[in-house]
Design a protein around this nucleic acid. Structure first.
Length: 423
RNA sequence: GUGGGGGUAGCUCAGCAGGUUAGAGCUCCAGGUUGUGGCCCUGGUGGCCGCGGGUUCGAGUCCCGUCCCUCACCCCA
């Protein structure tokens, strides 16, 4: 190694080497395709925002705000934060650009990097990538259903089959307040059986106790009141309609009344998509309706639904399943037999590339044999060999590597012959 | 922040009743084939055995400390 210090990528961040980034890119291509087909337009927001945007939207008490944000001051002393989630920045942009004026309904999507200071583990990094969409303007259940169908379709087109969609409704403010009281009333007598964190949540955020992973608590919760019994008529009708639309769209789902999302801004519909082979962090996607958020951020009262999904987790889910498709780029490797041909090799390589053919050559001045080995290693379809004899004749040897067949072609005809698919 | 597992070659790992020059497979390079890849054969490059200290005649191996990675809890995508 030689040097005193080895630099390393910092905890929770990682490099994507070419092989992997190729796979990620193909997933992202699918995302872009489906989003565009469904009428969603891409939005790109800055890497950091005013800190208060997140404390206001995500919830002062949430873990994200209390301990996971990368926050720093700029030269003027303003507190800035690397974005830990994307709904708030997108809503900020929506309000800032008065996008509501451009049409009653606004459909946006994004693919972006986020930052949270957590202890890394399988499927969780400190810099991670999400894609998501927000449908802003419609309060109606078919919009909830479309958003759910959108992620579901993307995940399916990516090739994931072993996924489960969980949905629930946490009602709007009124229903939820009534339910919260009922839940606290139910749990308080059992307070001593609860974990330390759940006891604290009994004060701060009782609904979150519902999706505790503790078996004991889950047993206790079996008899707890259900949020679904506390929905008011409007909430209930909305929820029933969402399920109805999903059925009509043939999107399979499981009702999960214990599912409560972590971010404070959700209302009514919440959903999650999980995969069994991603480790303990099994949620690939989370989302729901947030009818109050835009107002809370200073905009006009505007209903909206959205979701966010984790790219790294999706990649994990894929590795288990289908074999990665072999990408066979038709490559031509141009080989110099002797140093005299270097010039001609470089020229021909450039001509082929200009013709749209992917081509490469050896800049290490290695032996002919080594160059042929390289051509094979790259799984090139053809090796084009130029030596002194060929130089003199204005030709080249064109070898088809799978068959081993080799012919002499005039140099001038090579790129057109290869691009027209001859041989 | 808490707990489990782990750091030996570019990669995957073996070696640990402490004992001479630290190993294998893969990769890479060269030769066998003086202008031709794959398969095969031969040889070679490449290691502060994470770091610091201690015990010992002797430490990759034992002890202490420390850093890093990883899985899980918490929480979330």
């Amino acid at each position: 190694m030689g040097s005193e210090q080895q630099f390393k990528s910092i905890k929770g961040t990682r490099d994507l080497l070419p092989e992997e980034s190729t796979r990620v890119r193909s997933v992202e291509t699918t995302i872009h395709d489906v989003m565009n087909r469904w009428g969603y337009g891409e939005i790109r927001t800055p890497a950091f925002e005013q800190t208060e945007l997140f404390t206001r939207s995500v919830g002062e008490e949430s873990d994200i705000v209390t301990k996971q944000m990368y926050t720093f001051s700029d030269q003027s002393g303003t507190s800035l934060t690397l974005k830990p989630e994307l709904t708030a920045p997108v809503m900020r942009a929506y309000i800032e650009h008065d996008m509501a004026r451009g049409g009653a309904l606004t459909k946006l999507y994004y693919i972006d990097d986020l930052f949270r200071q957590e202890r890394p583990q399988k499927g969780r990094l400190r810099q991670f990538r999400q894609f998501g969409a927000e449908a802003i303007g419609s309060p109606h259940p078919e919009q909830d259903a479309e958003i759910v169908a959108l992620v579901y379709t993307i995940l399916t087109e990516i090739g994931l089959d072993d996924i489960t969609l969980h949905i629930n409704s946490i009602g709007s403010d009124n229903s939820r307040n009534v339910f919260r009281h009922a839940l606290v009333e139910f749990l308080t007598p059992h307070k001593s059986d609860l974990s330390e964190t759940s006891q604290r949540r009994l004060q701060t955020n009782p609904l979150r106790i519902l999706d505790s992973k503790s078996e004991e608590e889950q047993k206790l919760l079996k008899n707890a009141p259900s949020i679904l019994d506390y929905l008011d008529d409007d909430d209930r009708a909305h929820y029933e309609d969402v399920k109805h639309f999903l059925e009509r769209m043939n999107i399979p789902f499981a009702e999960n009344k214990m599912m409560v999302r972590g971010l404070d801004y959700y209302t009514r519909t919440t959903f999650e998509i999980t995969s069994p082979n991603v480790g303990a962090q099994d949620a690939l996607c989370g989302g729901g309706r947030y009818d109050k958020l835009i107002e809370d951020l200073g905009g006009k009262q505007t209903p909206a639904v959205g979701f966010a999904a984790g790219i790294e987790r999706i990649m994990l889910a894929m590795e288990q399943g289908d074999e990665d498709s072999d990408q066979k780029a038709p490559r031509v490797y141009v080989v110099a037999a002797g140093d005299a041909a270097r010039n001609a090799v470089l020229k021909l390589t450039m001509d082929l590339r200009a013709e749209g053919i992917s081509a490469d050559f050896d800049s290490l001045r290695r032996s002919l044999k080594a160059q042929m080995r390289e051509a094979n290693r790259l799984s090139a379809s053809h090796a084009v060999i130029i030596g002194e004899k060929e130089l003199a004749a204005g030709t080249a040897q064109v070898k088809t590597l799978v068959s081993g067949e080799q012919d002499t072609w005039p140099l001038k005809e090579i790129s057109s012959n290869l691009s027209s698919g001859q041989v």
